[in-house]
């Protein structure tokens, strides 16, 4: 985990111009379609569409894999777990003691794995193509979420971006005061814990101070205007439509293929 997770470099040039609300809409629609059913067809359709749209992000395959490898592992493990625990239907494929895999359970596992990946990617799309300030502007102006909370959240997001720097400073300061990170593994672990706690304390301290600074500038009551208008472009209609299309396509394909498997049924 490094700094670039907290302050990501934006790469998606086309998507970046779209309004965050439309991107959010597309992601939510796709996610809902995926969540509604656990089957391999709908998951595969969504995943294929997402991969096809990948060039929009302007990130190389290697760059992407570096970013999402934990997701790949998680998808694999999820698939395996389901294959192990699902109802054992169909022909037996493998049977070693308690480990029994059948055609039915393996199909379920594959569905869960594909679905997991397909679920994860919309978040990555938004992350790589959305500036947090634009997101806050859009949430407050277009979705009319309460502005105090939106801006409070935005300000704290910035504070956390500074945490890495603060962590380093804190390490130096503790070293200078005589409790550095040396000694036995136990001492090191304790020191790490102490430093993490110190970091949270500092973050809260800064937040309290920041709240004062915000109030000193008239934040917190009454109505407010927005210096930057959050607007919808024709591009946003396209983004929303693509989201709807992908979702509808996945559902239709699954129903036609007869694999549709509603989670509440």
């Amino acid at each position: 985990m490094s700094t670039d997770y907290l302050t990501p470099v934006l790469t998606g040039t086309t998507l970046m111009r779209a309004n965050p609300v439309s991107k959010l809409f597309a992601a939510v629609v796709i996610t809902l379609a995926l969540m509604a059913s656990i089957d391999w067809v709908s998951a595969a359709v969504v995943l294929a569409c997402e991969l096809a749209l990948m060039p929009l992000l302007g990130i190389s395959v290697r760059g992407l894999v570096r970013r999402i490898w934990p997701l790949l592992i998680a998808a694999g493990v999820g698939a395996y777990g389901t294959a192990l625990l699902a109802e054992k239907t169909g022909a037996v494929l493998l049977d070693i003691g308690p480990f029994l895999f059948t055609e039915g359970s393996v199909a379920a596992g594959i569905a869960v794995g594909l679905r997991g990946l397909a679920l994860a990617l919309p978040g990555i799309f938004i992350l790589l193509s959305t500036d947090p300030t634009d997101l806050a502007d859009a949430l407050a102006q277009k979705l009319h979420l309460p502005h105090r909370f939106v801006l409070g959240g935005l300000a704290s997001l910035r504070l956390v971006g500074l945490l890495v720097e603060q962590w380093e400073m804190l390490g130096l300061a503790r070293h200078a005061r005589g409790i550095g990170s040396d000694g036995s593994p136990v001492a090191r672990a304790r020191n790490l814990l102490g430093q993490s706690f110190g970091l949270i304390v500092q973050a809260i301290r800064r937040a309290t101070r920041l709240a004062t600074a915000m109030e000193a500038r008239g934040f917190g009551s009454g109505s407010r205007t927005w210096a930057r208008e959050s607007t919808f472009l024709p591009l946003d209609a396209v983004v929303a439509a693509v989201g709807l299309l992908v979702a509808a396509g996945a559902v239709t394909a699954a129903v036609l293929a007869g694999t549709w498997n509603f989670i509440l049924s």
Partner: peptide, 24 residues
């Protein structure tokens, strides 16, 4: 150090005026 609210210089300066509902 602790009174910077937003990520960009322009937004930061605009912040107070926005809170006072000044027209865009």
């Amino acid at each position: 150090e602790t009174q910077v609210v937003l990520a960009r210089v322009g937004d930061e300066v605009a912040f107070a005026a926005e809170n006072l509902a000044v027209p865009r």
